[in-house]
Amino acid sequence: MPIRKPWLEWDDAAPTKGLPGAMGVYELADAEQRVIYIGKAGARSPFGLRGELFRHFSTPERLARENWTHPRMGEPDLPSIAGRARYYRFEVNHMYYSRWVELLTRHQEDRGTLPPANLEDPEPRPRLGRYHWKSEEATSGL
């Protein structure tokens, strides 16, 4: 099933502590709320979901202001995310890996392809399976 949560718009001024430091999965969307990336904050993600979302969204000014030690902080983001990501939603989930695979599989089944930034992502992903049916969100054109 998809992440059943409303999209949130990133607020660069909001305190980062409002985001969970836990493991889980997240989705990024563009201005039209189309999913452009499905990510996970796994066991090796410093600061969990908070760190991953901050890595994608935060500005250089904020990076300079806050003392983050995420190893990928400051790296250029994937082309489909950089400058395009506007919304996010997440789910705290200890089974982040299999849940991530589930979200990727559902997206691929519904849209016939992965989100654009996942196609660019060099991070290895396991072989994805098939549902053999499309979800209501896909068939209703949402």
Partner: peptide
């Protein structure tokens, strides 16, 4: 034939 859901365990 349908995979109704991936069951998280």
């Amino acid at each position: 034939f349908r995979v109704e859901r991936l069951v998280q365990v």
